[in-house]
Design a binder for these strands. Structure first.
Length: 558
RNA sequence: UGAGCUAUGGUGUAACGGUAACACAGCAGAUUUUGGUUCUGUCGUUCCCGGUUCGAAUCCGGGUAGCUCAACCA
């Protein structure tokens, strides 16, 4: 009886899940991943994808995901970033098995370097940075061997120890792996393992003046933590052979690296280095400026963690370069907010309306549902009086044929309140509309009308004397270029900055909006989703636009 | 001009030799106390050329295009 078509369709696996399931099939049932940020900046939506992948995979296969800070370069790193990163991961809804730092492994890493020297696989090089660069060759021409490459094990051991002891200045010497200066993979041309940096480290202080490079530290850290699946982005693909080389040379736990394509979003800059520059040059208000793609900025704008997770799920995981429509992210946010956000009325571009046959002294309260999609959300009261504001866009003196809202002689429903009819348009000397004079149907309060007529147009409004004035910020993409990361040579991001990325206006809000908690988005009817800003106070409300509604009425104008 | 990675609708992601699917965007319509939400319909010669096969997005050969790599960054 049960037909095949009714069977729930099995969700297909992404390539990482396939790799894991294959290894499980071979008997390797343990799954251990890690999320390894460098604490040199704030996490952004691209990291959110990586977090969802790493924590998601671990959860799906009954494994664990570690948080490991890749803090091998003290000149760029800071505890400020460590704290922010932890906060953002938690906000996204994930928790790590253990928290580690590459710097926890500095002693072990040093011992392993000594072992590699002992095996004749590493040597101390006295060449200058420039000489090393020149002798590395290029992509098509082989490198040149260092004159120091054949030092004895004893001499290397002695020199490396003295490097550690602080006998040499920054840049005087480096420790290099001895591999192949003619290798087609540039990373195999005797990669640098340690450099001298007389810099205080945010965790180890002044204990070390030599610091391991990424290639030497990362795989080993994975190995120490017995990571089974070390997942990173595509640009690390060329590093994998070196990752394997160190692990094999050291004969330690064989972690493996797998690469996926990083997330790109239209009109969004994703390069951490460039984002830092935006902050440093005050092009934005800070890392959590609502125009930034950082997780803390999304939080400030009122995005929900669930919507970001849904987005990560929706974009999938693959190995080809991609650029995802920003509309996809916004869809995920709206989808979530549609279900949970309360509706409120707010007028952002006010037009004064006087209801001539309504008692000037009177105030009525109308009951409005908080969320038509969720009855349990309840209702709230909205004051109504003789003078109200409506949206300027909701009135047209000469309406096109399919315009359903207010026009001279026309009638609309004020949401939750009366039907009103426009009797007169008041203009100033310059011909600008300054006020509408309308009459209302006293019998139309509960959704009915005195004679059973119905109108097609329903508009939002606020009572002028009860309205709360608030700063409302409308955010648009920071960049006009579809892919701002991809700037031409010699061109800077400034050329692509959108001058209208932030528009600040004064809005008139219904009084209940005073009680909206910071960071919680509500829907302003027909306008979009907004949430109170961090800097909002009861005396001075600031609302940020979270995301717009689908703007289907705009096309009626064109 | 070396090596590696990747090619499926406007954008993403599936299909694992058997009639190319899902989502977003777009377009059209229905419902609606907001034109939102919800619902329905619609949109493709799988980068190219050749081969294997009854049958190819999938396998093989050869092209082409895009991306990555020449920090004492990660």
């Amino acid at each position: 009886m049960a037909t095949e078509t009714n069977e729930p369709k099995e969700k297909s696996l992404n390539f990482l899940e396939e790799i894991i399931e294959e290894s499980i099939a071979k008997g390797n049932t343990r799954v251990q991943t890690r999320f390894p940020p460098e604490p040199n900046g704030y996490l952004h939506i691209g990291h959110a994808k990586s977090i969802c992948i790493n924590f998601g995979l671990a959860k799906k296969y009954g494994g664990k995901c570690n948080l490991r800070f890749d803090d091998t370069n003290p000149v760029k790193e800071d505890v400020e970033y460590v704290d922010a990163i932890k906060r953002d991961i938690k906000w996204l809804g994930f928790d790590w098995a253990i928290e580690r730092y590459a710097s926890d492994y500095f002693d072990q890493l040093y011992d392993w370097a000594v072992a590699l020297i002992g095996k004749g696989l590493a040597y101390v090089d006295d060449q200058t940075q420039e000489q090393i660069r020149e002798n590395r060759g290029t992509i098509s021409v082989p490198g040149t061997v260092s004159p120091w490459r054949n030092r004895s094990v004893e001499e290397n051991l002695d020199l490396f120890m003295r490097m550690k002891n602080g006998e040499f200045a920054d840049g005087a010497k480096v420790l290099r792996a001895k591999i192949d200066m003619a290798h087609t993979n540039m990373l195999f041309r005797d990669p640098i393992m340690y450099r001298i940096l007389h810099t205080e480290h945010h965790r180890t202080g002044n204990k070390w003046c030599i610091y391991p490079m990424y290639d030497y530290a990362h795989g080993e850290s994975d190995s120490i933590e017995q990571i089974t699946h070390s997942i990173c982005t595509l640009e690390f693909d060329v590093h994998r052979p070196l990752y394997d080389w160190f692990i094999q040379s050291l004969e330690i736990f064989p972690s493996h690296q797998y690469e996926f394509a990083r997330l790109n979003l239209t009109y969004t800059m994703m390069s951490k280095r460039k984002l830092l520059k935006l902050v440093q040059e005050n092009a934005v208000m800070g890392w959590d400026d609502p125009r930034m793609p950082t997780i803390c900025a999304l939080r400030r704008k009122g995005y929900t963690p669930a919507s970001v997770r849904a987005f990560a799920e929706m974009v999938g995981v693959a190995k080809r370069d991609n650029i995802i429509d920003l509309s996809k992210l916004e869809y995920c946010v709206r989808e979530d907010l549609n279900k949970i956000a309360d509706r409120r009325m707010a007028v952002l571009n006010p037009l004064r309306v006087v209801i001539t046959n309504y008692d000037a002294q009177k105030t009525e309260l109308f009951s409005a549902v908080n969320n038509p999609e969720n009855e349990a959300a309840g209702t709230h009261q909205i004051p109504f009086s003789q003078v109200i504001y409506i949206e300027r866009d909701d009135f047209m003196e000469e309406p096109p044929k399919k315009f359903f809202r207010l026009c001279p002689g026309g009638e609309v429903r004020l949401r939750y309140a009366y039907l009103i009819k426009c009797e007169e348009v008041v203009k100033d000397a310059a011909g600008n509309i300054t006020e509408l004079r309308c009459t209302y149907d006293p019998m139309s309060g509960s959704g009915s009308s005195s004679d059973g007529r119905r109108v097609k147009g329903v508009i939002h409004w606020v009572s002028a004397k009860d309205a709360v004035e608030a700063e409302v910020r409308l955010f648009n993409p920071l960049f006009t270029k579809e892919n701002p990361d991809d700037v031409a040579e010699g061109q800077s991001w400034e050329d692509n900055l959108n001058p209208d990325s932030m528009v600040q206006i004064t809005g008139y809000l219904e009084p209940s909006l005073r009680e909206t908690p910071i960071g919680q988005a509500v829907q302003f009817e027909r306008v979009g989703y907004f949430c109170p800003d961090l800097e909002s106070t009861p005396e001075h409300l600031i609302f940020n636009r979270t995301v717009t509604l689908k703007d289907s009425w705009a096309k009626i104008n064109k």
